[in-house]
Every structure is written in structure tokens, then in C-alpha cells.
């Protein structure tokens, strides 16, 4: 078996400030990896570099493409990378507004990726959109409503549907439950777990919420000052942290 994603010595600096440096990781099919660290630790920069939103200064992001096997997405042509971005990859933003078209109906939002890859049958597109709204527990009667009329949790679920409709194999998530009520978070976490399991998705989840990674991630990577300080099984890193920073991070969490 080949890793779905292989990151090699990835680095990105902003002038003298290190965004992230010397990051390497393998993500296997079906695996969910959490990346934690406090604000400014470089976890979002790393995610943006992996997802192709930011061009890294150094390193490779090798994705196991369906057609050609493992290929470095950093040196890939932009059209090829964009095609990945709307087929095999998905990106869930923290703020649903960043990942949705607020002026377009829910159905149009879900259908966009289908149309971007050539779907040209309105009835089929609408049927697929309806199916996906159901999967993310949005009433099919809302298909023609704009996301602005949705609650925060619904917007986030719509964003997830919009991203997963093309059956991606890799999902990047940036604080997917941030900014949501705790009860809404729980529903979203359960939804994500179910989708990951049913679709065999691999995912990279950036968050500062250790409870979220404990429930969602198989593996964990801890970042500090742009560098990886510890990696391992999620529960092992959280329950038996080896690095001083991780120990501090874990012990700083309020127990509930």
C-alpha cells in the first residue's frame, strides 16, 4: 500500500518569520490526522501549504493520484492542482462563509463542484444535491434557499456536502467545529466520523481543540513555532505526551 499523502521537508517562511519548517508526514488511506498547536504554531500555514493554497518555499507534497500514482503537487501545474482541488481533494474552512457562495442557493453550492468537472444534466445534479443535503441532515425543502438563511451549524454542514459531493479521497479541515455551539459541534463531529468511515476518506484536521482530535483523529501531530514537536497515536500523545510542550498543552486543558 502507498501513503495517500507524503509530505517531505515542507517549509514556508514569511521573511524572517518561520511559518512552518521541516515538516514531513505520511497519511495513509482512511486515516485521520489531527494537527494541534496554539495560535501561531504554524498549523494553518502547514495546512494551506499542503492544500496548495500557499506555495511552500521548500519541500514536496506528494499525492497518490488516481491516474498517475504519486505526484508532487507543489511542482504540478496549476490547472492540474486545481483539478485535484475540485475532485480528489476537499477543503473545509473554519468559517462556512469562506467556503460557500453566499449568493447561491444550497443546491447550487453543492452542485458547483459537479458542474466544474463537467456535469451537464440539471436533473442529475439536483438529485445528487438533494441526496447530499440529506446526508448532512439538511431538509431537502431548503435546497433553493441561500446559505445566508441557514444557522451556523447548517452552513458548516452545507460546506461539507459541497466539498464531499465529488467523492474526494482527502479532506483538509481548518478548525471545522470552531465557532460553533458545543451541541452543534457534537452533531458535526458525529457526521464527520460517519462520512469518513463510509467514504473511506483520509483527512487532515487542524484544530486547537484537543477534545475534537481525540474523537476524530487516529493520529496526532503537535506543532510549536512552525515545527513538529511530537507525533503519534492520538490517545497516546494526549495520555502519555513525551515532549515538554505537549505535556504543557495537555495539562492546560480544562477538564470537564
Amino acid at each position: 500500500m502507498t501513503p495517500l499523502l507524503q509530505v517531505r521537508d515542507l517549509g514556508k517562511s514569511y521573511g524572517r518569520h518561520i511559518g512552518c519548517a521541516d515538516v514531513s508526514l505520511d497519511l495513509w488511506p482512511g486515516e485521520v490526522m489531527g494537527i494541534v498547536g496554539e495560535s501561531g504554531s504554524g498549523k494553518s500555514t502547514l495546512l494551506a501549504c499542503m492544500a496548495g493554497h500557499v506555495v511552500p518555499d521548500r519541500g514536496q507534497v506528494i499525492f497518490d493520484t488516481r491516474a498517475d500514482g504519486p505526484r508532487d503537487t507543489v511542482s504540478m501545474s496549476e490547472p492540474a492542482r486545481r483539478m485535484l482541488g475540485r475532485t480528489d481533494w476537499a477543503f473545509v474552512h473554519q468559517h462556512a462563509r469562506d467556503g460557500l457562495r453566499m449568493g447561491v442557493s444550497a443546491g447550487g453550492n453543492v452542485g458547483e463542484r459537479l458542474m466544474a468537472v463537467g456535469a451537464r444534466h440539471y436533473g442529475d445534479i439536483r438529485a445528487t444535491a438533494t441526496d447530499w443535503l440529506g446526508r448532512v441532515e439538511i431538509d431537502a425543502g431548503r435546497i433553493d434557499d441561500r446559505p445566508a438563511t441557514f444557522s451556523g451549524g447548517m452552513q458548516q454542514r452545507l460546506q461539507i456536502a459541497r466539498n464531499l459531493v465529488t467523492g474526494p479521497r482527502l479532506v483538509f479541515m481548518d478548525e471545522p467545529t470552531g465557532g460553533l455551539d458545543v451541541s452543534v459541534q457534537a452533531r458535526l463531529l458525529d457526521l464527520l466520523r460517519g462520512l469518513v468511515r463510509r467514504m473511506g476518506l483520509s483527512a487532515v484536521i487542524v484544530t486547537h481543540d484537543l477534545a475534537v482530535v481525540r474523537l476524530l483523529a487516529d493520529r496526532l501531530m503537535v506543532m510549536k513555532d512552525g515545527r513538529v514537536v511530537e507525533t503519534g497515536l492520538t490517545d497516546q500523545v494526549l495520555d502519555d505526551p513525551q515532549h515538554g510542550y505537549t505535556q504543557l498543552l495537555v495539562s492546560s486543558v480544562l477538564q470537564v
Binding site: G107, E112, D144
Partner: peptide, 18 residues
């Protein structure tokens, strides 16, 4: 530049939906 034209059909989709 990238022939990223899915959005154009979104506009037509919205027309039909409405």
C-alpha cells in the same frame, strides 16, 4: 486562464431552480 468554468453553469442552475 484555468478554464475553471463550473461557476457559469451554477448561474444557469440557479435560473432553473428559481
Amino acid at each position: 486562464a484555468l478554464e475553471d468554468y463550473g461557476l457559469m453553469h451554477v448561474k444557469l442552475y440557479e435560473d432553473i431552480a428559481r
